[in-house]
């Protein structure tokens, strides 16, 4: 029983990072209709940027993290402005290839600049700091990640539902011609979406980096986050978060009771199942276009 509860707890912990990555991907997909495969590496480079500020410039954690978030937003805006916007007559396939290209470039850059070895992020909460309740270990970092993920989900949900900019972002995605003719600067709106998404993804990177820090650290969370986003219907923020926790928990239980080797594959088996049974995602409510 203790084992079971511990597995659930770890599942929730890892699910939180998936949730943050899933949220980040949903935000971009909602406005650009591109699954952004560079999401993980955008978070990666932000994490290394934070580490650089902390170790080489001896900044305080707060300042370093604040600057890193600024960096993340600027990076997101820059990528949209400098690369994605330049695509002439873009189609989804072309855009996906571009995001994969960006991913490769950032990955290469980080490996070249910082080396491919495991680094340590000097973070005030270490990976082994835990609350102990009975016989259950709950890592403090996991709690912080959980809180961050839920907070982002709620803020983003309210933002898209009630704020003017959030509505404008949804409008731009649904019909960019109509958005322009009511005065929305669609280019700028799209750019801001990338900035916000980059910020959310970066928070995942920063929260993972105290535990794991090497150039491939974001691969697993990115792919699982993507899986969660797909399961959630790709446009639903709460959907992506719920799916992320389901994935984290199922994965851990599978790893504990069935096979540790195939633990990470479970996510993709689930995706395939979801796509076969309910391709619009588990939680999406979409208006089906009348033809």
């Amino acid at each position: 029983m203790i084992d079971f509860i511990q597995m659930i707890v770890s599942g929730v912990a890892v699910g939180s990072t998936y949730a943050l990555m899933g949220l980040a991907m949903v935000i971009i997909y909602k406005t650009s209709e591109v699954p952004n495969f560079a999401q993980g590496e955008m978070a990666l480079i932000t994490s290394y940027f934070a580490m650089m500020l902390l170790t080489q410039m001896n900044m305080s954690v707060y300042l370093a993290f604040f600057l890193s978030f600024v960096f993340a937003v600027v990076l997101g805006c820059f990528l949209e402005f400098a690369i994605l916007r330049r695509a002439k007559e873009p189609n989804v396939l072309g855009m996906i290839v571009i995001t994969i290209g960006i991913e490769m470039i950032i990955l290469g850059f980080v490996s070249w600049k910082f080396g491919a070895d495991q680094k340590t992020m000097p973070f005030p909460i270490g990976p082994y700091d835990s609350f102990i309740i009975g016989d259950i270990f709950i890592s403090k970092l996991a709690v912080l990640t959980l809180v961050t993920a839920l907070l982002f989900m709620i803020i983003l949900y309210l933002f898209f539902k009630y704020s003017k900019l959030g509505l404008a972002m949804k409008a731009t995605q649904q019909n960019s011609v109509a958005a322009q003719i009511i005065g929305i600067r669609t280019n700028r709106t799209l750019m801001m979406t990338w900035g916000i998404s980059s910020l959310v993804g970066a928070s995942a990177g920063l929260l993972i980096s105290p535990t794991i820090m090497h150039p491939f650290m974001m691969w697993d969370p990115m792919l699982k986050g993507f899986a969660a986003a797909v399961m959630g219907g790709m446009t639903s923020l709460p959907g992506a978060v719920i799916a992320a926790y389901m994935l984290g928990i199922i994965e851990n239980l599978f790893g504990g009771y069935v096979s540790i080797e195939f633990k990470t594959v479970v996510a993709f088996v689930i995706i395939v199942l979801v796509l076969c049974i309910k391709p619009s995602g588990l939680f999406s409510k979409h208006y089906i276009k009348k033809v």
């Binding site: 003017k164 509505l167 404008a168 949804k170 409008a171 649904q174 019909n175 011609v177 109509a178 958005a179 003719i181 009511i182 005065g183 929305i184 979409h286 208006y287 276009k289």
Partner: peptide
């Protein structure tokens, strides 16, 4: 401008449309 063929936002509500019409 009211374009040919309406050009509405499928998944915004009527109220949200009117708010967005006043976007500027």
């Amino acid at each position: 401008y009211v374009p040919e063929g309406r050009e509405i936002f499928d998944e915004l509500t009527v109220h949200e449309h009117l708010l967005m019409g006043a976007y500027t």
